[in-house]
């Protein structure tokens, strides 16, 4: 304890010495410890005066100056590089932007006919006909460094169901090529299950369950703000039997709002196309 006190007092004395106070002035602050502090402060002052001759310092400084300047000019220009993880993330983000941008471009140029009911209401198996190519590859340079190059590849695939047909009388179940599975019914009372609204995983599954089994339970679990399907997105009654793709579009719209742009949507490019179609319309 006494040691701790002396340590603090001595440090205060050192600070006062640094500030330019004389030893006598400092000792007046601590008269009870003056006998102990005086030799210690004398030693401290002695150490403070240990110096390298100024001529030696100046001579060395002059000799090194030109070399330091040379090193400064010889140093390579700084190039800012992203960390590898950020580079990959930036590349993927750009890939996503290109994908969505590419789809919008197709829509804008009329390659995709949004008014074509056969395409719009057909099952996903009919949509490969509107894709520009089955495989799209994007090479993106994420940063200025030669090594920071990321390549993103997208393969659009679709599966054909034996029961799929481009007509409006499609089967109630439409399976997309991606992980998203949509199940449509002919009723307006379809809603998301609670597990769907709670999870924001990219591989979310949207399910429309038949009314008799689930509609009695689900609305009581869902908050009002998360009403899964706005009425305007529901398929018309007369198209109920073939409205699976309209359902896809509305589901995707809702999903985009809640998921904030999940990467899974990229793979569901066909489905998203339907969703965008609905919006544009």
């Amino acid at each position: 304890m006494a040691d701790r006190l002396m340590i603090e007092i001595f440090d205060d004395c050192v600070e006062r010495l640094h500030a330019g106070q004389s030893v006598e002035d400092i000792l007046h602050q601590y008269p009870n410890y003056a006998d102990t502090l005086r030799p210690m402060l004398e030693i401290t002052r002695g150490i403070q005066r240990v110096r390298v001759p100024s001529a030696e310092i100046s001579a060395s400084q002059d000799r090194i100056r030109s070399r330091v300047l040379h090193e400064y000019h010889a140093a390579p220009t700084r190039r800012y590089t992203l960390p590898p993880v950020l580079s990959m993330a930036a590349a993927l983000l750009l890939a996503c932007l290109c994908l969505f941008g590419g789809g919008a471009g197709l829509v804008a140029t009329g390659i995709i006919d949004l008014d074509n009911d056969d395409v719009q209401f057909g099952t996903p198996s009919a949509q490969p006909s509107i894709t520009d190519s089955p495989t799209a590859t994007f090479s993106l340079t994420a940063s200025g460094t030669p090594t920071a190059t990321a390549t993103a590849s997208l393969t659009r695939t679709s599966t054909s169901s034996p029961t799929a047909s481009p007509s409006r009388s499609s089967t109630p179940t439409a399976t997309a090529s991606s992980t998203r599975t949509l199940t449509a019914t002919s009723t307006r009372t379809a809603s998301r299950t609670p597990s769907m609204t709670a999870s924001r995983t990219p591989s979310s599954t949207l399910t429309r369950t038949p009314a008799p089994t689930n509609t009695s339970l689900i609305p009581t679990r869902l908050p009002a703000s998360q009403t899964p399907l706005p009425p305007q997105n529901l398929p018309p009654t007369d198209d109920d039997s073939s409205g699976s793709n309209n359902d896809n579009g509305s589901e995707n719209d809702n999903d985009d709002d809640s998921d904030g742009g999940d990467d899974n949507d990229n793979n569901n490019s066909n489905d998203n196309g339907g969703g965008e179609d609905s919006d544009d319309d």
Partner: peptide, 10 residues
């Protein structure tokens, strides 16, 4: 000081 001037651009 060599390390210093080199680090300035890194």
């Amino acid at each position: 000081f060599f390390k210093f001037v080199k680090s300035l651009r890194g």
